[in-house]
Design a protein around this nucleic acid. Structure first.
Lengths: 152, 152
DNA sequence: TTATACTCGTTGCTCCACGAAACATAGTTT
DNA sequence: AAACTATGTTTCGTGGAGCAACGAGTATAA
């Protein structure tokens, strides 16, 4: 699956060129069809190959639109969701609302996260990483059940 | 199904041009026949393809007209419901009472929510989204059972 | 170590499709 | 019959998709 972080620049139309090393896999996996939406906790975008996205959509569909909290999640994730298809040059267009949400300007980071990518503005990404490292090294976390059994 | 938010302007007759990418699906799904009504929780409109609406109508019919809360829901949704058919140019007319309910003026947002669309005045939508994001990022929510297992 | 070839990322340009607004026609009501 | 409303048509402008070329960085070989 997808790993690694790449620095990429948007062109003046807001298009993002997928690194060559991911293109074959994406063509096979989903014919270049992907869905981009926002992360509900962080100022970054999430980019799913279509099959992966459909799983998410299923989950969202099962939420109750009468419950305000669940409705809010639906509104955010579905409202921002956009189909993004790779063009013949391996690029995809990021819609203006999404760019605005993640503060994307010129340089961004495309970060492989197994079944999806995260898309960060490069500056925001640098900051985020710095904070994460500081927190880990300070031992600033509460051990959850799942981390108990986690060995690297 | 339907996803993504699009900014659209009403023409001076109160007509709304459905984005081209939805038109084929809508033609196949319901021959352009849709039903528009109000949302009971938010100042926005709900736009259902006819088959989807018929499901809703069934559910509404099954509510008790003796229970004041259920009765009120029936009155609102059924009272405002209007048939909206796409014309030959992929546009549909929003009746004045509906426009008034959602404060629609010139610019609106058409938001795909799986089996239906939401229609918001653009300014109101911006505000709503800003609130939703703030609430999510602040961790300001009560975990429901369904959200416990929700992973993106 | 240096030179050459190739791949990949970036940018500029052109063409076409879609959306917005204005205009035109038909139908209805008083 | 006149005016108003609803529906259909046309035109224009903007923005997105495709195409091509340039440049930087890397690998390979002499």
């Amino acid at each position: 699956m997808f790993r690694g972080a790449t620095s990429i620049s948007l062109d003046d139309k807001g298009r993002l060129a997928i690194p060559a090393r991911y293109r074959n896999l994406l063509s096979l996996d989903c014919e270049g069809k992907m869905v981009c939406t926002v992360d509900n906790k962080q100022p970054c975008l999430l980019l799913y190959p279509l099959p992966e996205w459909q799983v998410i959509e299923q989950k969202l569909a099962s939420l109750s639109s009468m419950n305000p909290v669940e409705r809010r999640l639906q509104r955010l994730l579905l409202g921002y969701a956009e189909d993004c298809d790779m063009d013949k040059n391996g690029r995809l267009l990021i819609a203006p609302p999404l760019r605005q949400f993640a503060n994307l300007t010129k340089k961004l980071m495309l970060v492989g996260q197994l079944n999806k990518f995260e898309i960060w503005d490069e500056e925001v990404w640098q900051q985020q990483v710095a904070e994460d490292i500081a927190a880990e090294q300070a031992g600033d976390f509460t051990l959850t059940d799942r981390l108990q059994d986690f060995s690297l």
